[in-house]
Each structure stands twice: as structure tokens, then as C-alpha cells.
Design a protein around this nucleic acid. Structure first.
Lengths: 351, 351
DNA sequence: TCGCTTACTGACAGCGCTGTCAACCACGTG
DNA sequence: CACGTGGTTGACAGCGCTGTCAGTAAGCGA
């Protein structure tokens, strides 16, 4: 076996010049097509030939060229992710699960971000990914109800967390069941005797914020209760703190907060005002961030299973990419109420 | 202007068949090379020809094929990111800044994760990215001191947060100055009268955990103090809680914790044991997560500027990709001590 | 007027790979 | 012994784009 064999046939010396299929073929004494067969694990190659090719591949350190392969097969095995550029826990938590799920399915993940969730930015992001050759797109943690109608997008498989209106049939929504989540929180507070239940919502331009508020509203209605005060924050602990400061404590005995970080800010604000949590005010969060259980007052919250959402998103997207029609266009995964110490039975008399 | 013009010259009907350069060329009545010039914004094209081509590009909705372009230019303008698959705040926080910085520089970001930070997994991840055609790799939030010696990797530009030993000169380390961070926290406690200062470290297989511990040790040494107890957690609030439970409160009046989430768990544990924060025990964290300021006891902490680290990482990587030699092989960005309410002057008599 | 420079344009090859198809070989089988 | 038959292999074209280089037209000074 010759020892210096990498590179193009004739001349070539210093440049690294990655080995190509032809180099492996020459080294193994077969045609490049046969090497291609081995590399792609196709049938109908004699075992000993396959072994020899494999040896040459290892000897030369051959790695297939993705661009060349993509060019001829018209497949890139890349999926694109559009995320909002924020380090909010929610959008972030599913990210690595997304990558792992894609990886298991043989797809790579190209990431891009939008600063705000406008139609224009989203379309730009998707175009950016299309130029990059992705075969499908996941839109995660983007705010509102977006309408996309560029015809080029209509053929692009799309899975999103927010309802996006498209002309495409290749579009599925996968998310936690936000409505059921806040409904469960409200019901829990009701069962503990609370009758005046406030809500601290996320920015209502976000669909998930609006849906959590809807759950609060719907459950109150079913229970025959008038809604308590509605406050609005921006998901940040700071906004939770500031919003809670504006709440008149006589108007509510409990509050359902749209995420854990705002709930932490709110608890801080209530405490500063001399309210005791949970005796004077019950507080429920949403997300179950890792530190929720280890707060000074461990937080009652609605746990989202971000990795399930991520895995399901990838699964549905790959179905779309492979041409299988979606069974449902909208999938809501269950949430779980985790009762800890920030909620307690209502001490006052239920009105 | 004709209205139905997309597709290959002769036959073709139903299939979408994205327009190619040649289609645009035919539509505009020029050669495909001229279209290429316009699309790539090269000089020496008559303004009116350029305008006509641009009109045809828009009319057909042409988008260049990245694979074909990459094949001929040998450039993919993709960079790869290797991250550990955890939703730790630190590794996650810089992610979007990384993407934005790459985007501004004209590069795409391909993400991959490793479950644990072994040499084998890292090499596999980098190979995965190489097959995907990335021109450089950023390794973020990966634990220990890794040694890579595969010759193929030696040519791959690499920026990492942890010290990775390679034979490559194309390798730069960019990170927050961890040592200075904990030194500042220790110094702050010393200045408040504390003389017995404990440390709750992250998993010491992580280089950043080890360096934070070193900062604690070094500053104590400079101050002529004996180190207080050393506890070890795994970055999670839970581990902080459990570790703090094992601390004998008579052996320390203050503790420097290696991240905010463990600090939260520790505060919870101290409180359960009847210790008052900060009067009975001062606690300092690390990271400045958004909710740190809004805890029941707002957390004194060391703020890392994750977006600076991310931007600098991308900048250095692109320098390496473009062949400029690195000026420094190791860059430490400053941290900032944020004093809040979880640390206070020592009440007991300084030994 | 010629020669020379400059601005612009297009023909053509080929990046590294895979799909198609024909060729080949070793087996039975009629 | 001629003839399939199925397993195995390689020649060749071409995916969509860009680099090279030659060619054409226009401008300009002598």
C-alpha cells in the first residue's frame, strides 16, 4: 500500500486539498461510482470490495462534500430555525431538543434570528434560510399572528409555534396547550377558595400571551366568576415587578402570571408592599423554569414540556418535507400544573 | 413582458422547478455569466443591463443555489457552533448574539450539540459540521480541557470558550475573565468585613468552574486568608440547594457561588435552616441572570457580558477563516460586580 | 487614419458528486 | 451448449454556478 497518495493525480504538493471521491477510487483501485456506493451504503457491492474502499476512505481521511452532493441530489438535509433574538427561557429551552431531534433524523439545523416578529422580518428570515438551502423551516417563539403569502413560501414546509396564516397546506402548528395551562392554574386557585383572581399577561401581541389570557378568561367564565384585574408585562422579571406594583391588593386574592420570571418580579413587588406570599396573595407562574422550585417561596407553576414540543415539531416538519400530508394542522401538547408553596387556600371569605 | 416564463426552456409544466441563472438570462436576453455578475454585484456591467437583469430576477423570483455556488467557490459562508445540550443560562445567553454577529458578517450558523464534553463527542461534532461544510467552528459552553489532534482539525479555524489543546495555530480562546470575576466578589466580601469565605463551585470538570474557583483561591491568598469550605454543585438550583445544606454555618460568614441559579438554591437552603440572608450569611452569585435583581433577596452577582463574548468570538473566527493570524490566542473580556442585597457587612467579629 | 487602451460581454470548462444505463461475469436452465 | 438472469461494476453526463479568457465595441491620442 502506497503511503503518499492524497491529492489530485498529477502534480500538487503543499496545499491541503481535501481528498475527493476520485482520490479514494484511485487508492482503492475501483471506480468513483463504486466508492460512492460504499459511502452511501448502497447494496450490490462485493464485501471485499466494500472493505477495501472503506480502508481507503479511512486512510485518506475522506469526507464527502456536502455541496456537491446537495447539488446533484437536490437535497440538503438542512432545516432552518427562526427564533426571536431574546434569551427568554421559553424559546430557548426547546432549542437544543430541536437540534437533537433534527440530528437523530439526519438533518442539520441552521439558525437565524429576527429582532421583532413582523411579517417583513419573518419573510426575510425565511428567504435567508431558503438561500441557505433549507428544506423546511421551524418558527419558534415568534410573537403574533403572521400572514405570509409570498408564493415562494407556499411550497416551503413550515412548522410554527404561533398561528401563521399561509396559503400553504404544508404548515403545521405545534405548541403547548396554553389555554388548558392557565385554565388549570385558575381552577387550582378556585379550588383553594379564591374568587377574585387577577392575571398578569405577557405582551398581548404574542399569541402565546393572548392564549394564556384567554385560558384565564374562559375558566373564570366557566366557573361563573367575574375576571379580576388584568395586568400586562413583557415577560421580564422587571416588568412583572412593575406591573405588580400597580395592582390594588384589595381587588384580588390570587394572580395567575403568564411566566415564571414575571411571577418572580411580582412576588418581589408584593413582598416589598408588605404582602405575605402565599397568605395574602397566591401567585402562580407558567413554564416551570429550573429555579422555580428553589425560590424563597417555591413557585406554583404550569410546566411546559419544551422538549416534547421540539421533538414533535421536528417530526411534523420532516413529515412535510417528505411529502406526507399532515394529519392535523394544529397540535397542542399537554401541560402540567405543579403546585408548590406560592399558592395557598384563600383566607378571606369567598365573596 | 411575458407573464409565463419560469422554468426550463422547452417542456415543463406542473413541477415548481426553481428558476436557475439560465432562466433569468433567457428572460433578460443576456448570458448567464452576466446575470451572475449582477447577482454578485460585480463591476463592469452597463447600468441598463444591470437594471434589466434585476427586473428579470424579480420577475422570476430567482434565488441563487447555495450548493452550486459553494461547490465552485469552495466557500460556504457557514460557521458551526458546538454547544452542550443543556438549557443552562450561560451557554444559551450568547447564542443569539452569536447568530446576529455571524449574520452581520455574512455567515450562517449551523448548530450542533454534544451531550457530554468528551474528546470523542467533540471530535464527532466537529466532523459533523465539517461534512456540513462549515468554514470554522465555535465551541461554546463545553466543559473541560480538551485535546484534539486529528490532523484534519488542525486546519479548521476554531474559537472556544474552554482551553482546547490543538496543534493548530488557527485557534483562539474567547471568554469572560472568570478569575477576575470571582476575585472581585471575594474582594467585595472582604471589604465588607468577611474573613471566612466559602465557595460553591460548578462541576470542576468544567474549565469555567475551575477558573472561578481559582479566582476565589487566588484572591484569598492575596488577602492572606485561609480558604473557607469548598462545595461543589452541577450548576443547577437543586444542586446549590443540596450543597448549601451540607455547609456548617459556623465555618463561614459568606459564600461565593459559581452561578446565580445555584446561589438561588443555596439561599433557599440557608433560609430553611433559619439563617437570614444577608445578615447571617452573605451570598454572591455569578452571571447576573435577568431574575437575579428580582429575587426576594436581590442577588449580588458578577455580570458576564455574553453578547460581547459572542461578538468577539465571531470576529476572531472570521479573522482566522480569512487567513489573518490571530494577535492573541487567548482573550478575556471583563466582568462587572453588581452589588445588591444578598451581601452585607459582616456582623460577627472578624477573626 | 491607425493603433491601443478600456469597458463590457459571453463561451466554455469544471467544482465533486450521483443517476442512468450499458457491460460484464458467473450461474443455472432448457 | 445457447440462453437468460441477477449480481456487480464503471463510463459518462450533468446538477447550477463561477473563473478564465477571448472577443467585441467604444474611446482617444498621434
Amino acid at each position: 500500500m502506497n503511503d503518499s497518495a492524497v491529492g489530485t493525480s498529477s502534480k500538487e504538493a503543499s496545499k491541503q486539498a481535501l481528498p475527493r471521491l476520485a482520490d479514494v477510487a484511485a487508492h482503492a483501485g475501483v471506480s468513483s461510482k463504486t466508492v460512492s456506493r460504499v459511502v452511501n451504503n448502497e447494496a450490490n457491492v462485493r464485501p471485499q470490495v466494500r472493505a477495501q474502499v472503506l480502508r481507503s476512505v479511512a486512510a485518506l481521511g475522506y469526507r464527502p462534500n456536502a455541496a456537491a452532493r446537495a447539488l446533484v441530489t437536490q437535497r440538503t438535509h438542512q432545516i432552518g430555525l427562526v427564533a426571536t433574538a431574546s434569551s427568554l427561557y421559553g424559546p430557548t429551552a426547546g432549542l437544543f431538543s430541536l437540534e437533537q431531534a433534527a440530528w437523530k433524523a439526519g438533518y442539520g439545523l441552521t439558525l437565524t434570528t429576527v429582532r421583532e416578529a413582523s411579517e417583513a422580518q419573518l419573510e426575510e428570515a425565511i428567504h435567508y434560510l431558503m438561500v441557505r438551502g433549507v428544506e423546511g423551516v421551524i418558527v419558534s417563539g415568534v410573537a403574533g399572528i403572521l400572514h405570509l403569502e409570498t408564493s415562494a413560501l407556499a411550497e416551503m414546509p413550515l412548522v410554527s409555534t404561533s398561528p401563521i396564516t399561509t396559503e400553504s397546506v404544508k404548515h403545521v402548528l405545534v405548541d403547548s396547550d396554553q389555554v388548558a395551562g392557565t385554565r388549570a392554574a385558575v381552577r387550582h386557585l378556585y379550588d383553594s377558595g379564591h374568587r377574585r383572581i387577577a392575571h398578569l399577561a405577557g405582551p398581548l401581541s404574542w399569541d402565546s400571551a393572548a392564549r394564556r389570557r384567554d385560558g384565564w378568561l374562559l375558566e373564570l367564565e366557566d366557573l361563573g366568576l367575574h375576571p379580576g384585574p388584568l395586568l400586562v408585562g413583557d415577560w421580564s422579571p422587571k416588568s412583572g415587578y412593575e406591573a405588580a406594583l400597580t395592582l390594588d391588593p384589595t381587588t384580588a386574592t390570587a394572580i395567575v402570571v403568564a411566566n415564571d420570571h414575571m411571577a418572580m418580579g411580582a412576588i418581589r413587588a408584593f413582598t416589598e408592599q408588605g404582602l405575605h406570599i402565599p397568605d395574602d396573595m397566591s401567585v402562580a407562574g407558567f413554564d416551570d423554569v429550573p429555579e422555580a422550585a428553589y425560590q424563597m417561596v417555591p413557585l406554583t407553576t404550569v410546566r411546559q414540556n419544551f422538549s416534547s414540543v421540539a421533538e414533535r415539531s421536528v417530526r411534523e416538519l420532516i413529515h412535510l418535507i417528505e411529502g406526507r400530508a399532515a394529519e392535523k394542522t394544529s397540535i397542542h401538547l399537554p401541560t402540567e400544573l405543579i403546585v408548590r408553596a406560592s399558592t395557598a387556600p384563600c383566607l378571606g371569605n369567598p365573596r
